[in-house]
Design a protein around this nucleic acid. Structure first.
Length: 424
RNA sequence: GGAGAAAUGGCAGAGUGGUCGAAUGCGGUGGUCUUGAAAACCAUUGUACGGCAACGUACCGGGGGUUCGAAUCCCUCUUUCUCCGCCA
């Protein structure tokens, strides 16, 4: 959520920058500013009524104590009217505040100045491309066929037990999952991220804090009976650790990593993009989360991008790094870099990581603030996160790129984690 | 799931209708003393909104109510603890 202060002080800039996200915010911002004026006026009126009431109440107490009952009763009458007035103003205020809030949550985050304009993914900018493209043998196939051939991932079985998008990993397929999770967690820890094992279901306040609610409500599995949501990413519980927290500047940087299963309804996505491991309802992911001083958040974003890049390099996968354009940027992000790996068996680039700086957008919802050492004033922190990494598409790329006529070789770095060096 | 008890500032803990944004202790910060440190002593130490400021207003788990006035009384929800039941 953008802060009112920012909108007030940078109205034109906000409108101009939101155009990069292909949004004309002119009307909504005008609306917000008008509502806020109303809010101020109403609150001032209410404060004044309450102030008078408070002083009358004090008087009444004094009068009763000194035995001036008649005067006291007169004063009581007076405050009866004020009470009514204050109550009405209070209701009006609640109304305005909720309207204002509803408007504010409709505004997405302001994109960073380096975000290129563009409508959708075709206009993302490739920052760099690296890694060696594999040379496949003539019998090479996409991962869904490999999974079947070596009996390591069973999609049909998942359909039987749960439904489409919930694969069953078997034997070396299951071990490969475990190996990747450990590999990623260890590497992240070495890079200074402390490990968290969070709850996989969260309450409404947490969903709101990181921005999934209200705008992505339909994308989360909802446990109605308890009003809880299955997490779409560990970002949600981990970032919400810091909801309603005031840090001091020396706490920075806060860096966490967490492995979790992720659950996404993916309502409305069909077609061949969803084949095999390309898009699932449940998948495993290791996430990195950082909370930073506003002056340093872009430095930290860079270091997170480099770290994720090193993971992909260690797995020996060809990849490209994209700077997302305005049209492809998520609602809450100010700047996002995506990593895609090349999956040779299906001749496709697959997104495996998204590393973003949310600046103070999430922090404002979370009320995640900090104090500069020695200062009294609080200000909003910056939050960042990235996948490091999401497993299914990494597995898809490993299976496809490392396939040989004799079986699927395991990348060197992973052998010690797997306990085997080939799937055959 | 059943029965009972509780929820107050960073922590501990007092406060049962007005003088309470809240005693006291610990912790934090600044200072005095000291070569330095400790101890002692002094001062200071919640958040938000409005206001140039003085200051005003709100917040004692959340919401609602009674009252001229609520941390304090009532209702309700949530959470925690104890006991019982069930259980990985």
């Amino acid at each position: 959520m953008l802060t009112l202060k920012y909108i007030q002080e940078n109205k034109e800039e906000a409108i101009a920058k939101l155009k990069i996200k292909n949004l004309d915010a002119t009307d909504i911002i005008a609306d917000i500013l008008a509502k806020d004026e109303g809010r101020k006026r109403t609150q001032k009126e209410q404060d004044e009524s309450l102030a008078v009431m408070n002083s009358i109440s004090k008087e009444v107490g004094q009068l009763f104590k000194t035995g001036k009952v008649e005067e006291a009763n007169k004063a009581k009458e007076k405050s009866g009217q004020l009470k009514e007035q204050a109550k009405n103003l209070g209701q009006k205020l609640t109304q305005i505040e909720s309207e204002l809030h509803n408007l504010l949550v409709q505004l997405p985050n302001i994109p960073h100045e380096t975000v290129p304009p563009g409508k959708g993914e075709d206009e993302n900018v490739t920052v760099r491309e690296a890694g060696k493209m594999p040379e496949l043998h003539s019998e090479a196939m996409p991962h869904w066929d490999l999974a079947k051939k070596y009996d390591i991932i069973d999609f049909e079985l998942g359909v039987k037990i749960t439904g489409a998008g919930f694969p069953v990993y078997k034997g070396k397929g299951a071990k490969l999952q475990r190996a990747l999770i450990n590999f990623f967690l260890n590497e992240n820890e070495k890079a200074g991220f402390t490990e968290i094992m969070p709850p996989l279901v969260v309450n409404e306040a947490s969903g709101f804090g990181t921005g999934q609610l209200p705008d992505k409500e339909g994308q989360m599995y909802h446990v109605g009976i308890d009003n809880l949501y299955l997490i779409p990413t560990a970002e949600v519980p981990v970032t919400n650790i810091y909801r309603d927290v005031i840090l001091t500047s020396k706490d920075f940087p806060v860096k966490h990593t967490a492995y979790s299963s992720c659950f996404r309804r993916e309502a409305g996505s069909y077609g061949k993009d969803v084949r095999g491991l390309n898009r699932l309802h449940q998948f495993e992911k290791v996430e990195v989360v950082a909370i930073e001083h506003p002056a340093k958040s872009y430095e930290t974003l860079d270091s997170m991008v480099k770290h994720v890049e090193s993971l992909i390099q260690k797995l020996g996968l060809p990849y490209r790094l994209l700077r997302l354009c305005g049209g492809d940027l998520s609602f809450t992000s100010a700047l996002t870099f995506d990593f895609e790996v090349y999956a040779a068996g299906q001749d496709k680039w697959l997104e495996v990581s998204s590393v973003s700086n949310f600046e103070s957008y999430q922090a404002n919802r979370l009320k995640l603030r900090f104090k500069e050492e020695g200062q009294k004033k609080t200000q909003l922190a910056h939050t960042l996160n990235g996948s490091a990494l999401a497993l299914p598409r990494i597995v898809a790329a490993i299976l496809e790129n490392y396939q040989t006529p004799k079986g699927i070789k395991i990348p060197d770095e992973l052998i010690k984690y797997c306990g085997f060096d080939i799937i055959n």
